[in-house]
């Protein structure tokens, strides 16, 4: 099983998904992130899915789970770079991301996290 690397940039954890996710990798990522947020005290998590070709219900649920976990540590989550075909499919599938923030690209995602932090 491949593990998704987590990078720390300032107070933000960046997860860039570059592999075809199998369910075990999804579960491992959730655990790794929870661990990382608690040890680093990060205030934000950005999940970059611009390279992800499909998001099914299992992967979709991961976003909501990660967002809930980070909220427990007072961190915000932004999912960035969702491809149009993936978005259309998710809508058809009937999946909502449960209020997870989204942004068009990494840059916008980082800005949103900054803004949220300033407003808080």
């Amino acid at each position: 099983m491949e593990r998704v690397p987590i990078l720390k940039i300032g107070g933000v954890l960046l997860v860039s998904i570059q592999i075809d996710l199998q369910d075990q990798s999804v579960l491992a990522l959730q655990e790794d992130l929870a661990e990382k947020i608690s040890t680093t005290g990060a205030h934000g998590v950005v999940i970059d899915i611009s390279a992800v070709e499909i998001v099914d219900s299992f992967i979709g649920r991961m976003f909501a789970t990660i967002a809930s976990i980070s909220r427990l540590f007072d961190a915000d989550t932004v999912v960035v770079g969702m491809r149009p075909a993936v978005a259309i499919t998710l809508v058809e599938l009937g999946l909502t991301l449960g209020g997870v923030r989204t942004a068009l690209n990494l840059e916008r995602g980082m800005k949103i996290l900054e803004q949220v932090r300033r407003d808080a």
Binding site: I54, D56, S57, F58, P84, A85, V86, I88, E92
Partner: peptide, 17 residues
């Protein structure tokens, strides 16, 4: 089409699981 590919692959993923 790309959208249809994505829909089919996503459905296959759900069903295979």
């Amino acid at each position: 089409s790309l959208v249809d590919q994505t829909k089919l692959v996503t459905a296959a993923s759900e069903l295979a699981r």
